[in-house]
Amino acid sequence: MAGPLLERWSDALFSWFDRAAADLTDSGLDATDIAELVRVADRNRAVLDEVAEPRLLHGDLWVGNTMLADGAPEPVITGVFDCDRTWWGDPEADWPIYLALKKPGSERDAFWSSYGPVRRTEHARWRAMVYEAKHATALLLEFHRFGWDEELAKTYEEIRELTARLAD
């Protein structure tokens, strides 16, 4: 894994946002909302830095990116693919966790029975909004590449709404 070596989770997260903002700018998109998000989140840097022990995050872990053992009575993962989004940090910041949380009461509940519940303290809920904004920021480039202007506009609005909620 390449990238800067940083001592605090907030530094790693803000570095990610800085690189994403640069990518947006390079693609001709506006990164002003991202800069404002980071400015607001920086006020509660200590809440982010409560995450003191980083975990390996895959960034795109789902069935299609796993190799399963053939013939095992229960699925056994023997390999993991597509690791270009791998980094270190808070497990709750990982894309698959974000997706699993978005559809409670579905087949994704099987994941939670093995993974365990996500703790939702006031600080964890605040961090989750920052992580949601991170995922929305990543989607901006995807929507731009596909020419999905309506989704792009909705996502910018989502980031502005999250920034306002973080500021409260």
Score class of each variant (00 low, 15 high):
Gly105Arg: 11
Arg85Cys: 08
Gly116Asp: 11
Glu92Gly: 11
Tyr115Gly: 08
Gly59Ser: 08
Ser106Thr: 15
Phe111Lys: 03
Val80Tyr: 04
His58Ala: 10
Pro117Gln: 13
Pro73Ala: 11
Leu56Pro: 00
Ala128Tyr: 05
Phe146Ile: 07
Asp149Tyr: 04
His58Trp: 07
Gly89Ser: 07
Met129Phe: 07
Leu56Gly: 00
Ala136Val: 05
Ala100Lys: 03
Phe81Gly: 02
Arg85Ser: 14
Asp82Asn: 11
Arg145Pro: 00
Glu74Trp: 14
Gly105His: 14
Val80Met: 05
Gly147Trp: 14
Lys154Trp: 05
His58Gln: 13
Gly147Cys: 11
Gly64Glu: 13
Ala72Gly: 06
His144Gly: 03
Arg108Cys: 13
Leu57Ile: 12
Phe146Lys: 12
Leu48Tyr: 02
Leu141Gln: 09
Tyr98Val: 07
His58Ile: 11
Ala138Ile: 13
Met67Arg: 08
Arg145Cys: 02
Arg119Tyr: 05
Lys103Gln: 13
Pro75Lys: 01
Leu101Gly: 13
Asp94Val: 01
Arg127Gln: 07
Ala124Gly: 12
Glu50Arg: 15
Glu50Asp: 12
Val118Cys: 09
Gly71Phe: 08
Phe143Cys: 04
Ala124Leu: 10
Tyr98Arg: 06
Leu56Cys: 06
Pro104Ile: 12
Val47Ala: 14
Gly105Asn: 12
His123Thr: 14
Ala136His: 12
Arg108Val: 13
Leu139Tyr: 08
Leu101Gln: 15
Trp148His: 09
Asp109Gly: 06
Arg145His: 12
Glu150His: 12
Leu99Val: 15
Leu152Cys: 08
Glu50His: 10
Trp126Ile: 07
Pro96Val: 06
Ser106His: 13
Ala72Tyr: 11
Pro75Val: 05
Gly64Ile: 10
Ala136Glu: 09
Glu151Thr: 00
Thr86Tyr: 03
Tyr98Ala: 02
Leu61Arg: 05
Ala52Arg: 12
Arg125Ile: 10
Leu99Gly: 05
His135Leu: 04
Asp109Thr: 06
Leu68Lys: 00
Arg125Gln: 14
Glu92Tyr: 10
Ala52Ser: 15
Ala128Lys: 03
Gly147Arg: 12
Leu141Met: 08
Lys154Gln: 05
Phe143Asn: 02
Ser113Met: 13
Val76His: 01
Leu140Val: 08
Arg127Asn: 09
Leu61His: 00
Val76Trp: 01
Glu107Leu: 10
Thr137Asn: 05
Glu92Phe: 03
Val80Pro: 01
Trp88Val: 06
Pro75Ser: 05
Ile77Gln: 01
Pro91His: 01
Trp95Tyr: 09
Lys102Trp: 08
Ala136Arg: 07
Trp95Leu: 14
Lys134Ile: 02
Pro117Gly: 10
Thr66Asp: 00
Leu101Arg: 15
Ala93Ser: 15
Phe111Asp: 05
Ala153Pro: 01
Gly79Ala: 02
His135Pro: 00
